[in-house]
Write a protein that binds this DNA or RNA. Structure first.
Length: 467
DNA sequence: TGAAATGTTGGGGCG
DNA sequence: ACGCCCCAACATTTC
């Protein structure tokens, strides 16, 4: 007998390889796809996260339409919307894919029992991770891993391959569609001039993976560190909204016969994502509380001017500024540069990593509740398997090392186009008549460094020693 | 998924 | 030929 089943989309904005959707499709069921904009629970997406999400929702709606279905969009508290909607459409079941933030887990658990109490089946699935956060445990402690390498080794030993589902041909519509609010408008963001590099949605995710595997993964193990090279997958925003499943990434990477070093290195980046979600699940306060408690006593500086300069990309250190400007222009920053920019805020400026985390949360199209927090804690040294406190990136060395010819840096800091080599990354060391001759005036056309590297490094080591 | 300081080695210039 | 110094190049340790 045919049933009406609600599929509740959340951070799984795709039709392919979607376990909740696939389970609903069994038999001749009518499916009601719904997305609920619930701003009462969970960390709300930042400006760029919302921009991406709204674009992605429009794509999801289009994809559903080409299967004979459509997306029902509702604003409100999920625990109110879902039971009401279920009753209204006569649903016998509600399916969704799991999320892992503590308040969302609690809400979903409550919804599940509320639905079951009214005789409606409710079931959740794993649609966004290779392993559930409670699934991979250390043999020695019995608990979750605290170090990445043994964690990922254990994952690989369990096996990364998963079964996959393709996009269904047809999704049976209910006899009558329930009312939907209008999908959110996807207004352009006036201060962003480079958002056309992105293609939010399932098709964009598939294209990004295909391009990466066919053209750009060669030499990944090394080239991934070079921000001027198109050597990273740029899948992070797609993964964040579940437009592609990690299982599909694993399957297609393995099928592409990538050279071992490059393939395993790439898949290990998925491993960091798994590791971050494990950390988030077992540490609900990941965005707010240092995993290593002793760091809570750290004497962070309040320095509004320095923080503003960092956000605007006007620290006077070109590789840092390039990264911060890439972030504001494109909603993205290359991973190598994220580490440099984050290290600069934390170690050179001694500003609380949580301030940086919040700024990235607003600005990144891939801002992810697990990855963003875990990575900031990693750089700060207060996280799991973190960089030691004395690891302080030198922006004058990182530049020449990873952007030797300055192509990346000059893309975002064009006022330094005339400089090259080490001078590009330390303009104040250039002879003043040389700067004059190319019309660079420090403090005018480009900022003077807001801190002295050697002094800032010494200050950071001194402060961190107090721990 | 660092950088800087310190230690070691070996070749070349030179008296 | 030899010792001495200098210093680049590399290795180790320290932060």
């Amino acid at each position: 007998m045919s049933q009406h089943i609600i599929v509740w989309f959340r951070q799984d904005l795709r039709l392919n390889d979607n376990p909740a959707l696939q389970s609903a499709l069994n038999g001749k069921n009518a499916v009601i796809p719904v997305f609920i904009d619930d701003n009462d629970c969970g960390r709300q997406p930042g400006i760029m996260g919302r921009w991406w999400r709204d674009k992605s929702l429009a794509q999801l709606n289009d994809a559903l339409k080409s299967c004979g279905s459509r997306l029902i969009f509702r604003k409100g508290r999920a625990q109110d919307v879902l039971p009401t909607l279920a009753k209204q459409v006569g649903a016998t079941a509600v399916y969704w894919n799991r999320q892992y933030e503590a308040d969302i887990v609690a809400r979903d658990t409550a919804i599940k029992s509320k639905l079951k109490d009214s005789g409606i089946e409710a079931e959740s699935f794993n649609g966004s991770l290779l392993f559930e956060p409670w699934e991979v445990t250390s043999k020695s402690t019995g608990g979750p891993f605290k170090v990445f390498t043994p964690f990922w080794r254990a994952c690989c030993a369990l096996g990364l391959k998963r079964g996959l589902w393709n996009v269904p041909d047809k999704i049976t519509a209910p006899a009558q569609w329930p009312q939907s609010d209008a999908l959110p408008a996807t207004a352009p963001l006036d201060h962003m001039d480079s958002l056309n590099i992105w293609q939010p949605g399932e098709d964009g995710a598939r294209d990004a993976l295909a391009l990466f595997l066919s053209e750009n993964i060669s030499g990944y193990a090394e080239r991934r560190n070079l921000p001027a090279e198109p050597a990273t997958s740029r899948l992070s925003p797609h993964l964040r909204w579940g437009e592609i499943s990690p299982a599909r990434i694993v399957a297609e990477t393995e099928a592409a016969n990538i050279k071992t070093d490059d393939g395993t290195k790439f898949l290990s980046e998925l491993g960091w994502r798994e590791f971050s979600y494990q950390l988030l699940y077992h540490n609900p306060e990941l965005a707010e509380t240092c995993l290593q408690n002793k760091f809570e006593a750290f004497p962070w500086r309040n320095d509004a001017d320095a923080f503003e300069a960092w956000k605007r990309g006007e620290t006077g250190y070109p590789i840092v500024d390039a990264g911060m400007r890439e972030l504001r222009r494109t909603g993205y920053m290359h991973n190598r540069v994220r580490m440099i920019a984050a290290s600069f805020l934390i170690k050179h400026l001694l500003i609380d990593w949580r301030e940086g985390e919040k700024w990235f949360w607003e600005c990144l199209v891939d801002a992810d509740p697990a990855n963003n927090s875990a990575s900031w804690q990693w750089v700060a040294g207060c996280g799991a398997d973190a960089a030691p406190y004395f690891r302080i990136f030198n922006p004058m060395l990182q530049g020449p090392k990873f952007d030797a010819d300055g192509i990346y840096t000059k893309t975002y800091v064009p006022e330094l186009n005339a400089l090259s080599g080490k001078t590009l990354y330390a303009p104040w060391t250039a002879k003043s008549d040389m700067l004059d001759s190319v019309a660079i005036s420090l403090g005018d056309t480009y900022p003077n460094p807001i801190v002295n590297h050697e002094a800032a490094r010494a200050r950071a080591l001194e402060s961190f020693k107090s721990l």
